[in-house]
């Protein structure tokens, strides 16, 4: 097991009370596995990613729960210890590659710095490794490209450079937060191809955070669906997408235009995501759910309706 989260709670203390961005998340990613973490804006999926590598800034803090990385509890590790892991064993890719790249430094400077931050190697060796990594993500003429600045790359190239930096130390786990959302379809496909190939070749585990169910369908092995700070359903991609059990998952799948007859009305989920400060007690989805009863005001327990599948719902979708 590369990564395991156990009942993780990350809260943001605000003047109007604790904002429970991550409200009891448990999930696991096995070696070489791609887990898609799917949710809409404000569901807490990004904060979950940040919590894993201790990048939650105050007033946010991990209130309770554990993050286990390769069996070791890394929750609340002191900053120097975390720095040894970050970018080395666990890497992160962001939606906006300019968050990772320094705009005033050349690519080689940034990459050599990254290599030498964790490995005691010479400048020349570091440069070679940086160049090889660029080649691996499919950047043409990596030698010349090394001495360019980030603004000289296109959006898709920049994201590839960011991925190449994430790959430098051959991490066991990559957390990718909406890395292809801002990209065009053809460029997105190129990035997905690179990631797919590398994960398969090196046995790297991937936590792929996205709002796009279709990308998850094509890329992931397993999927976890997040709503209002909780994982409402998880399981293998085939099981969850073909036989959703939670009404939110079913609604999300029904909202995808290609699942519907052309020109027909889309299945829609009524209402909108509740504010994290004002969530309904019990199941947070019950105010939008057609199957909700009084029971749903209680906390739905985490159940395992099938092997390798979890669900938080009193009234699962009947198949």
């Amino acid at each position: 097991m590369t990564l395991e989260l156990r009942d993780l709670h990350t809260h943001f203390d605000t003047r109007v009370g604790a904002l429970r961005a991550v409200d009891g998340v448990s999930l696991s990613v096995r070696r070489g596995e791609v887990l898609g973490l799917v949710g809409e804006s404000g569901s807490g999926k990004s904060v979950t990613g940040f919590s894993i590598i201790g990048l939650v800034d105050p007033p946010g803090r991990i209130v309770s729960g554990q993050v286990l990385f390769q069996g070791r509890d890394i929750t609340g590790l002191p900053e120097p210890e975390l720095r040894k892991l970050r970018g080395n064993r666990i890497a992160m890719i962001f939606q906006d590659p300019m968050m990772t790249l320094n705009p005033v430094l050349r690519i080689d400077t940034q990459r050599i710095e990254t290599v030498r931050a964790h490995d005691n190697v010479s400048h020349v060796v570091a440069r070679t490794r940086a160049r090889d990594a660029l080649g691996q993500v499919g950047i043409p003429s990596p030698d010349e490209r090394l001495s360019s600045y980030p603004h000289q790359f296109s959006g898709g190239m920049r994201q590839r450079v960011a991925i190449a930096i994430a790959l430098l130390h051959n991490p066991a786990l990559i957390i990718a937060d909406e890395p292809t959302t801002a990209l065009d379809v053809t460029i997105q496909a190129q990035i997905l191809a690179v990631v797919q190939k590398l994960a398969a070749e090196r046995g790297t585990s991937l936590l792929w955070i996205t709002h796009d169910l279709s990308v998850v369908a094509g890329l992931a092995d397993r999927v976890a669906v997040m709503y209002a700070g909780r994982i409402v359903e998880s399981g293998s991609v085939d099981a969850v997408l073909d036989r959703p059990m939670h009404h939110y998952t079913a609604g999300l799948i029904g909202s995808v235009p290609s699942r519907n007859k052309r020109g027909a009305k889309l299945l829609q989920i009524p209402g909108m995501t509740p504010s994290p400060l004002d969530r309904p007690a019990g199941c947070a989805f019950r105010t939008r759910c057609s199957a909700a009863t009084e029971t749903c005001a209680q906390e739905p327990p985490l159940t395992m309706p099938e092997p390798d599948r979890t669900l938080r719902c009193f009234h699962p979708v009947r198949i």
Partner: peptide, 24 residues
């Protein structure tokens, strides 16, 4: 044709991406 081949769809599981080369 290339554009349509690259669109991720719910029905396509563990697909092979990257049919179209180069950038705009």
């Amino acid at each position: 044709q290339a554009l349509l081949a690259e669109v991720p769809r719910l029905e396509n599981r563990r697909s092979h991406f990257g049919a179209i080369q180069g950038e705009l």
